[in-house]
Amino acid sequence: MVPSLHEWLGGTERLEQLTTLFYKKVLSDPLLEPVFRHMAPEHARHVAHFIGEVFGGPKLYTGTDGGSHAGMVAHHLDKHLDETKRRRWMSLLLESADEIGLPDDPEFRSALLGYLEWGSRIAVLNSNAVENPIQSDAPMPVWGWGEPGGPYTGG
């Protein structure tokens, strides 16, 4: 039985550790801080739960947190992100993954990087939109070890 990405990285607690460290870095970063200055105190936990669910973990984001894929996209609308901010976001998140010791095997890091590239590029596209391109009943994205079919793209 192949473990999910969520299991492989160490579960929900590890993702919460990752996003907590990451958002501390974001709030200290002159480029990204203005974008995240007013984020809710539970933002890091919600992002951890979103990623965890996408990576095959428990449905904490859509269940416990009451979130949805469309809701996550809605948070990015009209934020006017750009490639410079996206790259900084990626850099800080990957730096945080290294600092907390997420697995560094090539297969996991390839899957993680693939998801982060996909998701961050979609966030930039959606941040320059004013209407949500995702229907309210759209399923959550699903990401795995690179099996055929790839992620659900929401379109």
Rank of each mutant, 00 (worst) to 15 (best):
Met1Glu: 14
Met1Pro: 13
Val2Glu: 11
Val2Ala: 13
Ser4Gly: 08
Ser4Ile: 09
His6Leu: 03
His6Glu: 07
Trp8Glu: 11
Leu9Asn: 00
Leu9Tyr: 00
Gly10Trp: 00
Gly10Phe: 04
Gly10Ser: 03
Gly10Lys: 00
Thr12Pro: 02
Leu15Ser: 01
Glu16Trp: 06
Gln17Ile: 07
Gln17Asn: 10
Gln17Gly: 10
Thr19Tyr: 09
Thr19Phe: 09
Thr20Trp: 02
Phe22Thr: 01
Tyr23Cys: 02
Tyr23Arg: 03
Lys24Ile: 10
Lys24His: 08
Lys25Ile: 15
Lys25Trp: 13
Lys25Pro: 13
Val26Gln: 01
Leu27Glu: 14
Leu27Ser: 13
Asp29Lys: 02
Asp29Met: 07
Pro30Tyr: 10
Leu31Met: 09
Val35Tyr: 03
Val35Ser: 06
Val35Pro: 01
His38Arg: 04
Met39Asp: 08
Ala40Ile: 08
Ala40Gly: 04
His43Thr: 07
Ala44Arg: 00
Arg45Gly: 06
Val47Glu: 00
Ala48Cys: 05
Ala48Asp: 07
Phe50Cys: 04
Ile51Val: 15
Gly56Leu: 11
Leu60Cys: 04
Leu60Asp: 02
Gly63Lys: 03
Thr64Trp: 04
Thr64Asn: 08
Asp65Val: 10
Asp65Ser: 01
Gly67Ala: 03
His69Asn: 05
Val73Pro: 00
His75Val: 13
His75Gly: 11
His75Thr: 15
His76Lys: 00
His80Ile: 14
His80Lys: 14
Leu81Lys: 00
Leu81Glu: 06
Leu81Arg: 00
Asp82Cys: 11
Glu83Asp: 14
Thr84Ala: 09
Thr84Leu: 14
Lys85Leu: 11
Arg88Ile: 12
Trp89Cys: 13
Ser91Tyr: 09
Leu92Asn: 06
Leu92Ala: 10
Leu93His: 01
Glu95Trp: 11
Glu95Asp: 15
Ala97Gly: 12
Ala97Thr: 15
Asp98Asn: 11
Asp98Gly: 14
Pro103Leu: 02
Pro106Asp: 15
Glu107Tyr: 06
Ser110Gly: 15
Leu112Lys: 00
Leu112Thr: 02
Leu113Arg: 08
Leu113Gly: 09
Gly114Gln: 01
Leu116Thr: 14
Glu117Ser: 07
Gly119Asp: 13
Ser120Gly: 13
Ile122Trp: 09
Val124His: 02
Asn126Gly: 05
Asn128Gln: 04
Asn128Glu: 12
Asn128Met: 08
Val130Ser: 08
Pro133Ser: 10
Ser136Glu: 15
Ser136Gln: 12
Asp137His: 13
Ala138Asp: 11
Ala138Gln: 11
Pro139Leu: 08
Pro139His: 05
Pro139Met: 09
Met140Asp: 04
Gly144Pro: 02
Gly144Cys: 04
Glu147Arg: 00
Glu147Cys: 03
Pro148His: 06
Gly149Cys: 03
Thr153Asp: 12
Gly154Ile: 07
